[in-house]
């Protein structure tokens, strides 16, 4: 559980749980202060460290394997030619 100095605070004023901090980190919805705090936090919270490591590995896998398709050249050509047709009318 986060300590009293945690900058992860919910809208009701209470501190975020480990899982909530982790999710904010994964969703990159953190301030620099929160990022620094979390980095220190995982040095002494093994469950957080393991979960963060796992989730970041998944993120990296996603990035390396799931967005590498180049746009077929004909798509760009067709878009440009249709736009040009519109302009010339």
């Amino acid at each position: 559980m986060a300590d009293l100095n945690s900058p992860f605070i919910k809208s009701d004023g209470t501190k975020c749980t480990c899982m909530e901090m982790l999710q904010q980190m994964l969703d990159t919805e953190v301030t620099e202060e929160q990022r620094e705090y979390f980095k220190k936090h995982i040095d002494h919270c093994l469950p957080c460290y393991k979960s963060y490591d796992l989730e970041m590995t998944i993120k990296e896998l996603l990035k390396s394997k799931c967005c590498g398709n180049d746009v077929p050249a004909e798509v760009i050509d067709q878009i440009k030619s249709q736009i040009n047709q519109k302009i010339s009318f």
Binding site: C66, C67, G68, N69, D70, V71, P72, E74, V75, I76
Partner: peptide
């Protein structure tokens, strides 16, 4: 942004022609 758009379209449709 067309590359990101194409990749998004492909993931949604899972078909290259539909993505195009």
């Amino acid at each position: 942004h067309i590359r990101s758009m194409y990749n998004f379209g492909y993931r949604l449709t899972l078909d290259q022609d539909d993505a195009k």
